[in-house]
Design a binder for these strands. Structure first.
Lengths: 184, 184
DNA sequence: TTGAAAACTGGCCGACCGGTCAGGATGATG
DNA sequence: CATCATCCTGACCGGTCGGCCAGTTTTCAA
């Protein structure tokens, strides 16, 4: 009974999907509410009827990937350092490939992400992921290299097409394993 | 006789310097012509008197770093692959540190850089740098890893303060040398 | 000193932005 | 069929943006 797709749900879904596409193509800031509304086949006012404001649309677009990241960090955190690093590398690469289109959206907002309360957790989990990738050592250089790795990976996923998922996966896996030293 | 700083040159310089600071602090898109004018102590119309449009200010701000990149690419291109790679790594790291503040500006514009004619050369030279860093091999994976490296380095230079130039230099050098295999 | 060229500015314009609101259309329920 | 909540929209608002232009001020050489 809960699975019936109400009119509400259908419209919301259409808005979120079209917004996701536009955010990936033009970036969050360069996409207007009118753009989203036109693509979704409704009026700008309708978008704002379903979402509190433009940020609300962004939160909905990013929700699945955010949840996946949270899950990864939680699982890896429960493991010893060495296994946690191994798990983090493998699953993070998978995640990056799966959500490759959304990554440019994130990069577009890196400076202002912290200012949106809904994304406080995302920032925290990003930092936690850095530690996991660094292999649990407190070594500052290794931590910074891990951040370097994340940046490289995020940047690499930006340019669309041209690369299959398999190719992207191999590239990210290779680069991460060259960069990240196993923990001492 | 050519070195006398005319009124024109003094105002232009002030505008460019203030614009550079603002672009670094808030990003290009988030900085308005009025912001630049206020910081430079003149009116918005004056900014547009000295520069054709907002893009013109950006071109002037980026000109020194663009020139430095061109020089690096030109010098390295004249060398055999192995020496070219070595030179490219060392000098590119130095460049990144020297212009670290401007890098966030570049990243802010990565999607739209190609649309500005003045920056066509910059994009071309970025691609050429990729080849040089990859060690001249046609190997696609190594080329992609080189791009990965550039992205990581650019991303790492974004966050201001906190890291001294020396620390940033060490980090970038370490990461690049781990990532980039010497040519076969 | 003077007059033309260079430098500068206030005020204005059209476009677009995110967001609000009163009211019309639609669909489920009795 | 009537009713009422849900869904949706056109019109509008205050604000910011990049850019333009007519006209004033400053500079500087003759």
């Amino acid at each position: 009974m809960a699975a019936t797709s109400s009119v509400r749900d259908r419209t919301r879904l259409e808005i979120v999907q079209q917004a996701m596409t536009l955010f990936q193509e033009k970036g969050y800031n360069a996409t207007s509410l009118q753009d989203i509304a036109t693509a979704a086949g409704c009026s700008k006012a309708t978008v704002l009827y379903h979402f509190s404001d433009k940020t609300g649309v962004l939160v909905a677009v990013l929700e699945p990937s955010h949840a996946a990241l949270s899950k990864l960090v939680a699982e890896a955190s429960a493991l010893p350092a060495a296994e946690a690093q191994e798990l983090a590398i493998g699953r993070f690469v998978e995640l990056a490939v799966e959500f490759r289109g959304l990554i440019s959206v994130l990069q577009d907002l890196f400076g202002s992400l912290g200012e949106i309360p809904e994304f406080g957790g995302l920032v925290t989990e990003g930092l936690r992921l850095t530690e996991l990738l660094a292999g649990g050592t407190g070594n500052q250089l290794e931590l910074d290299v891990a951040k370097f790795a994340i940046n490289g990976l995020l940047g690499e996923c930006r340019h669309p097409g041209e690369r299959t998922d398999a190719e992207l996966h191999e590239l990210c896996d290779t680069a991460l394993r060259r960069l990240l030293r196993p923990p001492a």
